[in-house]
């Protein structure tokens, strides 16, 4: 398997263009969890969230990327999923739990928010950036916000 991920100093970037890239993103998420020695439920939350966000990019934006970083000072795994797709016009409806997708359960983005310790989303017709973070140490979490 060819790893298309690139490292930018302390960041690992996985390009997302189609469904097959989801496996790659999940694999990098698992490896990142191993790196900070988290497993079980903690690791499952990270991998599942990455899977949801990467699928959203592949399905709705066609192209984008997922960036992984370990913030050792705050003891957080930071994941940024970004794309230059059409944006999410019904974000409020989705985050209120009132949306049900034709293909899934409509819980991908909402579930990601519930799983992550930090969740921030910014969307516009120029694209979407979702920033999530998971605590792997004992420090207190940041706040959650949406734009």
């Amino acid at each position: 398997m060819t790893l298309a991920a690139t490292t930018d100093d302390e960041e690992l970037v996985v390009p997302i263009a189609n469904e097959s890239d989801l496996n790659h993103a999940r694999m990098v998420a698992r490896e990142t969890c191993k790196l900070v020695a988290i497993r079980g439920y903690q690791a499952q939350k990270v991998v599942t969230t990455v899977s949801e966000l990467a699928r959203n990019i592949a399905r709705y934006a066609q192209t984008g990327r997922v960036r992984f970083r370990v913030d050792t000072s705050d003891e957080m795994i930071v994941v940024i999923a970004e794309d230059s797709g059409p944006g999410i016009s019904n974000l409020d409806e989705i985050l209120a739990g009132q949306y049900r997708s034709r293909t899934g359960l409509g819980r991908g983005l909402l579930g990601s928010r519930d799983l992550a310790d930090v969740f921030d989303i910014q969307t516009s017709p120029a694209g979407t950036i979702v920033k999530i973070a998971f605590r792997y140490g004992q420090r207190k979490s940041w706040t959650t916000s949406t734009t």
Binding site: R26, R30, Q44, V47, T48, S51, E52, R55, T103, G104, L105, G106, R107, G108, G111
Partner: peptide
């Protein structure tokens, strides 16, 4: 290894 919303659906 992982069960996400799509696989559940």
């Amino acid at each position: 290894w992982t069960l996400d919303s799509h696989l559940c659906a």
